[in-house]
């Protein structure tokens, strides 16, 4: 990855790319935003790249209002033109066609054997989006064949996840925030930030049930679990009385998420 050195100001530059992470927030100071996004890498479908627009030939690309930095696409090679100074790959991912161009430097050491990137095979390319005349292409900084077909579907799912995250916000911060803040108290809030990964499997639960599971998990070092009364005192509020909690616990039990331990009043989370 040494070719991904520290990026220059111009992210179209061949060695200005790389970097990690996705654009995290569409809001922020515009000047800072630009350099952050320019260094970021986002997976796209080719159809999305064909919809990208720029205000003028030097401006940043935008897809549905979101600034584009480095892009990565997975597509089937339709044709290859090997020229002395560059190779041009025509890629098709089912949503459109795009050219990807790899410039050959005299010192260039291409670690990929030529025959691995052949027509009809799927490849992943990473680079900056550029245009030449009316045509747009990906200026390749990294190219490799897809050796496991699951990556094709991974890429599709990743493009969808990133699209939803950018247009609707992170799934764990958007809808959940108010509930955790309102009822959780600091211990649960701390817990959820430390153990966000552990909570991921419960993210599909309604907020009220999730806060119960969250509380039990935050306390559950003992095998016998937590007494329903303790849960009620921790979670309970005016709109969440004991009946609601016991009903929610019954449903959680039916769903196999919690179970009773030493008696019918102690609950623990199945793992």
């Amino acid at each position: 990855m040494s070719q991904f050195g520290s990026g220059g100001g111009n992210f179209y530059n061949n060695n200005g790319g790389g970097g990690g992470g996705f654009e995290t927030s569409p809001f922020g100071s515009p000047s800072r935003q630009k350099s952050d996004v320019a260094q970021s890498l986002r997976p796209f479908t080719i159809g999305q790249l064909q919809q990208a627009t720029q205000l003028h030939s030097d401006a940043e690309w935008r897809v549905e209002g979101q600034e584009v930095g480095q892009v990565t696409v997975v597509g089937q090679v339709v044709s290859i033109q090997r020229q002395p100074t560059n190779h041009v790959f025509q890629l098709d991912d089912g949503t459109g066609l795009i050219e990807a161009r790899r410039w050959i430097a005299s010192t260039d050491e291409d670690g990929t054997p030529k025959d691995e990137i052949a027509e009809q095979r799927y490849i992943r390319v990473t680079g900056g989006l550029k245009s030449f005349g009316k045509k747009r292409y990906v200026n390749i900084t990294s190219i490799r064949p897809i050796s496991n077909s699951h990556e094709i579907y991974f890429h599709l799912l990743e493009t969808m996840t990133v699209y939803l995250t950018l247009t609707r916000g992170s799934p764990h911060k958007g809808a959940d925030g108010p509930v955790v803040k309102g009822e959780g108290g600091s211990s649960i809030a701390n817990y959820s930030s430390q153990n966000a990964a552990a909570m991921e499997q419960f993210s599909n639960l309604p907020a009220f049930k999730r806060s119960i599971v969250q509380y039990i998990l935050s306390q559950a070092t003992r095998e016998e679990g937590i007494h329903v009364g303790v849960i009620a005192r921790a979670i309970g509020s005016s709109e969440a009385d004991a009946n609601q909690i016991s009903q929610a616990l019954d449903e959680l039990m039916d769903e196999g998420i919690v179970f009773t331990t030493i008696d019918d009043s102690h609950f623990n989370v199945s793992t």
Binding site: Q48, E64, L156, M160
Partner: peptide, 16 residues
């Protein structure tokens, strides 16, 4: 599952 998601109206601008 992936194929069905790509036809979801939420992703219309990405796949069609």
């Amino acid at each position: 599952d992936t194929i069905i998601l790509t036809h979801d109206p939420r992703f219309k601008t990405m796949f069609s």
